[in-house]
Design a protein around this nucleic acid. Structure first.
Length: 434
RNA sequence: GCGGUAGUGGUGAAGUGGUUAACACACUGGUUUGUGGAUCCAGCAUGCGAGGGUUCGAUCCCCUUCUAUCGCCCCA
């Protein structure tokens, strides 16, 4: 290697101005819209004690067993970069005693930020990615489940996305799940040898995942497998029915996907995913996912308190927006470009740009001592509306030239007028044109 | 963690085991001693991801590695 070269870490991205404008738009819309639903922003650390994530996600989940971006710090503390947002929020909820009676329930929080998973990058999947998420604690009402789904739909529609699929399912409570798990094992066991190798392993570890298999050998059995919805306890059944009724009442179309299983182990009752039906993004069709959970707050040392939440994959959302050609942010050109010719004009040029900026206009100038032609080319590339020219002659006369780039009209103005009345001068020019 | 494909300048790319690595766009300068989107002219990779090997000789062959990309697992 002749020279040390540096590349960004695998699975990460540099977001340049062309992209950041888009990111800001999407993030700011979330801030405003989630605010309408009375969610407040919470910012938690990007890394936490390893156990914060290990405990919450469940020991069998891949997120914990092989995707955690963890390391030991100089104090030999085992820490991990957060793989998802919920755990940190729950930890903060408990640590700051937000479950206390002085805080209204449900306690609603949203977050925006990077997440990390150590895995092979591919379509819609990165080692550092970003999520916009929300959590609400302290209510088991199905209305809260539905409100969160409605908020997501509201958000996506405002961004211009329609034709999204809302898939929902219920995992039931502990008792429902235990009963179903056994039924599923009883059903699949006799066919064990016919299952794919992956599913054979899944049957041991987490039988529900067999339902998710893409292998045709497994899908044969999945088609006739017992359905979890038939195993819900009365309480879970009631919750589930209410969720559907409320979604219908809000005219939110949804599909029941009884085979849907989510990646993190803590979910119960309602789970949902928002997916695109766009074929080009099939590898990363799920744009947002979430659900209801119980026991997490208690797990972190708080009282038993239910939660519901979701996470939106920002990269996936943005690529979908791009695929749909929904790029609401248009690049902004300059208001002014200041051309100066000759070294003697340097000081005045500087004063003029600053004065223009002082009026709130976007202004740029040349710093390379280039020719007038080159400077005008720059002005053109910046899509500048006006060009102010200061040469030796103008300097001697205490004036500057202002050229309207669209019309080609150029006028001479006194520097003193420019400094005090630039907006008026522009208005006057506008009148003349009409 | 496993498997497939790829890696040439700022960008898109052509190319061959052997003297100066096409072409286009972009950029810079000139054509116009101080004025933009056009024309024409000129300049612009001691280098073909990195390291090693084969060879008289490699960007082109082999190995390793890194990165990208697609799929599996899993997931946002």
């Amino acid at each position: 290697m002749a020279k040390a070269t540096f590349q960004r870490p695998k699975g990460t991205a540099d977001l340049l101005p062309e992209q950041t404008a888009q990111w800001q738009y999407v993030e700011n819309l979330a801030r405003v819209l989630f605010g309408d639903y009375n969610f407040k922003e919470v910012r938690t650390p990007i890394f936490e004690n390893f156990d914060v994530f290990a405990r919450s996600a469940g020991d069998t989940s891949d997120v914990v067993t092989k995707e955690m971006y963890d390391f030991h710090d100089k104090g030999d503390r085992h820490v991990a970069l957060r793989p998802e947002g919920t755990a940190g929020i729950v930890r903060a909820f408990v640590e700051n005693k937000l479950y206390g009676p002085e805080f209204d329930k449900p306690y609603k929080a949203f977050y925006i930020g990077p997440m990390f998973r150590y895995e092979r990058p591919q379509a819609g999947r990165f080692r550092q990615f970003h999520q916009i998420g929300a959590e609400a604690f302290g209510s088991t009402s199905p209305a809260l489940d539905v409100e969160i789904i409605a908020m997501l739909i509201n958000y996506f529609q405002t961004l211009g996305l329609d034709n999204l699929k809302v898939a929902i399912n219920s995992l039931g409570d502990q008792a429902s799940r235990a009963a179903y798990r056994q039924a599923l094992i009883d059903y699949l066991k006799p066919h064990f040898d016919e299952l794919s190798a992956d599913s054979q392993a899944r049957l041991e570890k987490n039988p529900l995942r067999v339902l998710d298999s893409k292998d045709p050998r497994d899908q044969v059995f999945v088609a006739d497998a017992p359905v979890i919805l038939d195993y819900l306890t009365d309480e879970s059944q009631a919750h589930w029915a209410k969720v559907q009724a409320l979604l219908t009442a809000l005219d939110i179309p949804f599909e029941i996907d009884a085979t849907m299983v989510r990646g993190l182990d803590y979910y119960n009752d309602t789970i949902f995913e928002i997916m695109t039906v766009d074929e080009t993004l099939k590898g990363a069709a799920t744009i947002a996912g979430g659900g209801r959970y119980a026991g997490l707050v208690e797990e972190f040392g708080g009282p038993e308190m239910a939660g519901v939440g979701f996470g939106i994959g920002v990269e996936r959302l943005l690529s979908l927006l791009a695929a749909k050609d929904l790029n609401p942010v248009t690049p902004q050109g300059l208001d002014f470009y200041v051309v100066n010719i000759g070294e003697e004009t340097e000081v005045t040029a500087m004063q003029v740009v600053q004065a223009i900026r002082g009026f709130g206009y976007v202004a740029e100038r040349d710093y390379l001592g280039r020719s007038a032609k080159a400077q005008f080319k720059s002005a053109d590339r910046y899509q500048s509306q006006y060009v102010v020219t200061i040469g030796e002659q103008e300097l001697a006369d205490h004036v500057a030239k202002i050229k309207n780039m669209a019309t080609g009209q150029q006028q001479t103005v006194k520097l003193t007028d420019l400094y005090t009345d630039l907006p008026t001068i522009l208005d006057a020019q506008g009148d003349e044109e009409e």
